[in-house]
Design a protein around this nucleic acid. Sequence first.
DNA 1: GTAGGGTTAG
Length: 449
Amino acid sequence: MKISTRKLISLRHPSLNLWHRTVDCFTWNTLIRAYVQRTHQPSSPTHTPLSIFLRMRFHGVHIDYYTFPFLLQSVHSPLHLQLGRSIHSQVLIFGFSSDPFVQTSLISMYTACGDVGSAREVFDEMSQRDLPAWNSIVNANVKAGLLSVARELFVKMPSRNVVSWSSMLDGYVRWGKCEEALELFNQMMKENEVMPNEYTMAILLAACEQLGSLEHGKWAHACVYKLGMEINVVLGTSLIEMYAKCGSIVRARLVFENLGPKKDVMAWNAMISGLAKHGYWEDCLCLFSNMVDSGVTPDDITFLGVLSACVHGGLVSQGKDMFERMSKEFGISPSVQHYGCMIDLYGKAGLIDEAWDLLNTMPMEPGVLIWGALLSGARMCGDIETCEIALNKIIEQDPTNSAAYVLLSNVYAKMGRWKDAGDIRNVMETKKVHKVPGRSSIEINANIQ
DNA sequence: GTAGGGTTAG
């Protein structure tokens, strides 16, 4: 049989013809890589990068220094830390523990697993540390929130490129130190050592967004323009989110329109939830239709935006319709937040029975978010019984919620159940529940009386 | 012919 007519590897039915003379280490490595890329996609395959690796070992195939960087990419969650450690020991057994590529991959793996200590151990053991190694250890500390350590390493590293600066910037933004981020960006521009790129600017825009400062945001946008950067979909999404959060929905919309046909689901989502937050529910729903028409499939975030627009506009029937389409048409199972929106929507419209019906169909345990939404609806239309149930649930799940005790006591007083009202006050005394500002998960502003 | 570092998500 001629080689060309014989399929060597099929991802759908992964079976290697192991007697085939071309099946070598390279092929296996490529197969592992293919499975790593595949695990990033929703449907999980029967074979994993690890199972390919194990088969590779079983068949006595040579393992080389390309194998582990691929394999380590498959470990990217704290849940898989033990697996990561096992692979690390394989690295030692196979004698690749001094390979800079493998070592940097190990640092990344430990970072993704949330184990900055092990990442640091690998880094400290490196005899030759190149730029990616330094960048990955800075990133490890950034992700762990160890900003002063990250900064120390950043200052100490022998050379810096745009990745180094972006990582450090990201650290500040990620941990709410936006002023420091702006300062670092200014330093970067002043030193003129490396030019910022799209990554850098997306991070800078996130800083402006967090600050809620339109002036800073406009300045960052001007920087993007001056640097002559093409506004790609990621940068565009960052701009839309920044403008929406900083209160300029008009500018957000301009960026959105200028993105042209290359908009992905995240870009649409940014615009849809931006419009929803600003109360433009008509435009929001219209944009949703445009999105579907243009062939972009909405996701759970899209529906959170659309449903919250319905809540703002009091659009009960549209909201109901969207909630149904979400699962029926798009196969998205509603999360607790989606249920929260719907119960909010019904509650605000005074449809407490509908709210209850939906609550009873929820596949998950309703949490404080749900009971809080039901409570606010019940309070608005004076449904005392529902208030009582919701408040008891809230107290059950969050016994330190002082506002809930006060409200419940008021509810009992309103019902003439003076003994129950007094009991609640006593429970508060004995449990030493005190008002803690910002602690309460429900609003205290309205009065039940 | 394959490899390591950084961006959007409520």
